[in-house]
Simulated assay, not measured.
Amino acid sequence: MQFLESVKEWMVLNPTLVSALKYVTWLILIILTISFLRKLLKRKLPDTSVRYKSQKAIEIVGYVLIIILTVSYFTGSVKDFTLAIGLLTAGITITLQELILSIAGSFYIFIVKVYQPGDRIEINGIKGDVIDIDSIYTTMMEIGEWVSSDNYSGRIVKLSNAFVFKGPIYNYSQDFPFVWDEINFPIRYGSDLDLAKSIVISTTAEILSEYLTQSRLNWKKVVSKYYIEDAKVEPTLAITMTDNWMQFNVRYIVDYRQRRSTKNLLNERIGKAILATDNKVTLASATIEIIKIPDLNLTAQGSTVEDS
Rank of each mutant, 00 (worst) to 15 (best):
I199H: 01
I34F: 03
R251I: 02
L65R: 03
L45W: 02
K56G: 07
A57E: 02
S6A: 13
Y227M: 08
V61H: 03
L193S: 04
D192K: 05
G154T: 08
M140W: 04
T75Q: 10
I92R: 06
L37A: 12
M141K: 15
P294N: 14
F36N: 07
I290N: 08
Q214M: 05
I126L: 09
M11Y: 10
F110P: 00
T203I: 02
S209M: 09
I290G: 01
I68A: 12
N244Q: 15
K22L: 09
S148D: 07
K158F: 07
Y63N: 08
P46V: 05
L87C: 07
I293D: 08
V222E: 03
D230G: 11
S191V: 08
F178T: 04
D194A: 11
Q116H: 10
G271P: 03
G125R: 09
D230A: 13
D47Y: 10
I156R: 15
G190L: 06
M1N: 06
I228F: 07
G167V: 05
I183E: 02
K44H: 06
R251T: 11
T93M: 13
I207R: 06
L99S: 14
E182N: 08
A196K: 03
L27V: 01
I156Y: 08
V305T: 12
L32V: 15
Y189W: 11
E142W: 05
P186H: 01
I66Y: 04
S148E: 08
Q247L: 11
D192F: 04
T70M: 06
E289S: 11
I270Q: 01
K197P: 04
E5W: 06
S106K: 07
I109H: 09
S303V: 12
D243T: 11
R188C: 01
I92G: 02
K158W: 03
R155D: 07
D129G: 02
V71H: 06
Q55A: 01
P168H: 05
S198K: 14
R216P: 01
I293T: 15
W180Y: 15
Y252F: 15
V71D: 04
K197R: 15
L237W: 02
I67N: 08
S198I: 02
L88M: 15
E122P: 01
I85A: 09
K232H: 04
L27W: 01
V78G: 03
T139C: 09
D295Y: 05
A231M: 13
I274F: 03
I67E: 07
D278H: 14
D47W: 06
I270T: 06
T93A: 15
N161W: 06
F185P: 02
L265P: 00
Y189R: 11
A84D: 01
I131E: 07
K292F: 07
P46E: 10
R269L: 12
I123H: 01
Y256P: 04
N161I: 11
R257W: 07
L296A: 15
V147K: 14
I103D: 00
